[in-house]
């Protein structure tokens, strides 16, 4: 449930880096995702590239009937992110915005100070902000104070395929914000990473590169969807806590005495 919108799929899928528009469309359908992320980029005039790359991309997305979550990818300042969000709201006719304010180009680590400020400005202006953040509790608290009703901590740096770098931090965030929808956004590589996030009680997973750059993006999209369902089901079924010593699963009582 994001800002009052109930969804049945817990997978949010990015639309970048697919080998072709057809594979993109097939992967979205195979994933069952009801929300896909999109961006805004400079559109060349018709003298440069026919009808315009953006126009044909948009017609594919529209034909799939999915909800869009526009991002502010690549923005490095509050001003840039806020202006981009306004352009996105007009373009996509949605108050949803995946807010990214990036500080470091190597790790694409968010500038959490700019993020909180931009989240406040946008929330006051009626946007429904999905902030791409770290697992830092204090930052998360500031984001909620700023008006965010969804938090999207990274699993690992964008595109790194490392999985959940800080399970402890993600667990603490879940425990601290039981009522706020939490989405692990970025850094996942394989479906087991997504299942692990769901087993921690996360509400959803947002990924892109792990599907788009897989050898078979359509099959991988399906695999992620299944892992997310499995992880969610496991969370609901209350998994065991790990322990240090063995605990025999077969009853000891009634074992035949066969030794010397």
């Amino acid at each position: 449930m994001f800002y009052g919108v109930e969804l049945s799929s817990r997978l949010l899928l990015g639309t970048a880096r697919y080998p072709s528009p057809k594979v993109l469309a097939d992967a979205i359908q195979a994933s069952g995702a009801e929300v896909v992320t999109v961006s805004l980029r400079r559109e060349a005039g018709p003298e440069r590239q026919g009808p315009g790359a953006g126009q044909s991309f948009w017609s594919i997305i529209r034909s799939l009937g999915v909800r869009v979550l526009p991002n502010t990818a690549g923005c490095h300042s509050v001003k840039e992110a806020v202006t981009t969000a306004h352009m996105a709201r007009e373009m996509f006719d949605t108050p949803w915005i995946k807010l990214e304010v990036i500080r470091d180009d190597e790790t694409l680590q968010p500038d959490v100070f700019g993020l909180v400020e931009a989240a406040r400005v946008l929330s006051e202006d009626g946007f429904e902000v999905f902030p791409y953040t770290t697992e830092d509790l204090a930052v998360a608290d500031r984001l909620v104070e700023a008006g965010c009703r969804v938090l999207m901590p990274w699993g690992a740096p964008i595109g790194s395929a490392r999985g959940l770098n800080n399970v402890y931090g993600l667990k603490a965030l879940r425990a601290h914000f039981p009522e706020i929808p939490l989405v692990v956004d970025a850094g996942l590589g394989v479906p087991s990473h997504a299942a692990a996030a769901m087993e921690l009680g996360y509400d959803a997973v947002l990924l892109n590169t792990a599907v788009a750059e897989a050898g078979d993006p359509v099959a991988m999209a399906k695999a992620f969807a299944m892992a997310i369902d499995a992880g969610r089901m496991a969370f609901a079924a209350k998994p065991l806590e790990p322990r240090d010593m063995a605990a025999p699963s077969t009853p000891v009582l009634g074992k035949a005495a066969l030794g010397d």
Partner: peptide, 10 residues
């Protein structure tokens, strides 16, 4: 002047 259009994004 910046003129932008929908584009692929993550």
């Amino acid at each position: 002047l910046e003129v932008v259009a929908p584009m692929q994004g993550g």
